Computed example of a mutant assay.
Amino acid sequence: MGEFFKLLKEGNKPSLLAAIVNTVIAILKGLAYFFTGNVAMFAEMMHSLGDAANQFFVFIGSSLSKKAPTPRFPNGFGRVVNLVCLGAVIIVGILSYETIKEGWHHLLHPVESDPSKVWINLLVLGIAIALEMTVLYKAGKEILHDAGLKGRGLQPFTTAFANLDRAKPATKLVFMEDLVATSGGVLAFIAVILANYANLYWAEGIVSIIIGLMMFYVVGKVFLENARGAIGETDEEMLNHIAYLVADDPNIKDIQKLEVIKEGEFLHVELVAEIDKNLTVAEADDIKDQLVSLILSQRGVQDITISFDENDGIHTWKHIKERPATLPTLKKPKDL
């Protein structure tokens, strides 16, 4: 049990914050819906409930993924976070369906809300939007941190989009869900105003359907990304980066094999390289130590397996491109 709580401390912090915030928001929206019967508020309540459950499970999954490898599971638990995300999106998918169904029913049979209670909906939605933006900002900063960038001012809201693919699975999920939650809150706020001050009662049904469709978009995108992660996906950007560093070592004559596989939030690297057959075992061991030190210093790399073969004079590795400009230029082996 002690190990479990220790792992929880290493879990994804934005997902835990988002789970707590969305639980509070869901309660507030539920109370507002109970007192006003506003269908847009119902959609927002369902959305917040889905996000809270989703993000809580993601936090647990991200914590368990940090567990060290065991004799029974020698490859570690990195992909647990992908499996948990796959399970979590099922919850969001069900709630998305219920949200769209309720919105469609309200669109066909619009119900007039009590004008004297409109301030309850607007107040709750205003608080929810402010809280969701706080979580979104925090997730954006975490994305920039994952990308090795510094986020100041509005950058966590803007620059985070360009680096979304380089974020950890849990952080990416939180950012996308809270982006939809913030947008949905703004739409619901507008719908309440239109319904109560312009008599456009169908607007609440339209907004409910839009929110449900946005939730479905998150479900589809997150499902596909984590399905690839659970299977084991090559990180092409880091593969090119590591290939550049390895080939830049004058002792490496060729690369026979290089794999950079995503294991949840981490990268597993396997390298087979060719070296001069006249090198001694001690010299080859020094080259290996330098490469291990260099590659493990790259962002996200957790473990590496390196083996050598003698140079056959045939150049087989032809996949090296220019160094990605978005990745940091680290020390070469000769400088270590």
Rank of each mutant, 00 (worst) to 15 (best):
A52P: 02
L107Q: 06
N75A: 11
N82C: 07
L83V: 15
L107W: 10
L108C: 13
R79A: 01
T36C: 01
A130F: 12
P69L: 09
A40Q: 03
V124A: 03
I27E: 12
F73N: 13
D114H: 06
K29I: 14
K141P: 00
G37Q: 11
K67P: 04
E132D: 08
V118D: 14
I25C: 02
A88E: 06
P14H: 08
F4M: 08
E44K: 09
N121F: 12
L86S: 01
K29N: 15
F42T: 12
L28H: 02
A68H: 10
P69V: 08
F56P: 06
T23Q: 08
E98Y: 12
I60L: 13
I20G: 11
V92H: 02
K9I: 01
I127M: 13
G93K: 05
G11E: 02
L144S: 00
P110Y: 08
S96A: 13
V39G: 04
F57M: 12
Y33W: 14
R72D: 04
L17Y: 09
T70V: 15
Y97F: 06
V81S: 00
A40I: 06
G126M: 14
V58E: 03
K67R: 14
G30T: 05
M45C: 14
A147T: 00
S116Q: 11
L28C: 08
V21E: 07
E98F: 11
A26Y: 13
R72W: 02
L17M: 10
S48H: 14
L131N: 05
A139K: 04
D146G: 02
H109S: 15
W119S: 15
N22P: 08
L136R: 02
L17I: 13
G50Q: 06
F35V: 12
P115S: 03
L86E: 01
L7E: 06
K117P: 02
L149K: 00
L144K: 00
G87D: 01
V92P: 01
L86G: 01
G11W: 03
F5R: 13
A139E: 01
V24W: 06
L83A: 15
K101F: 07
I20A: 15
P71C: 13
I20R: 14
T70P: 14
K117T: 10
A32E: 03
A147Q: 00
I143C: 00
D114L: 07
V118R: 15
F77D: 00
T23G: 13
K9P: 00
R79L: 03
V124I: 11
G2F: 12
V135K: 09
P71S: 15
G93T: 06
F4S: 04
V39F: 09
H145Y: 04
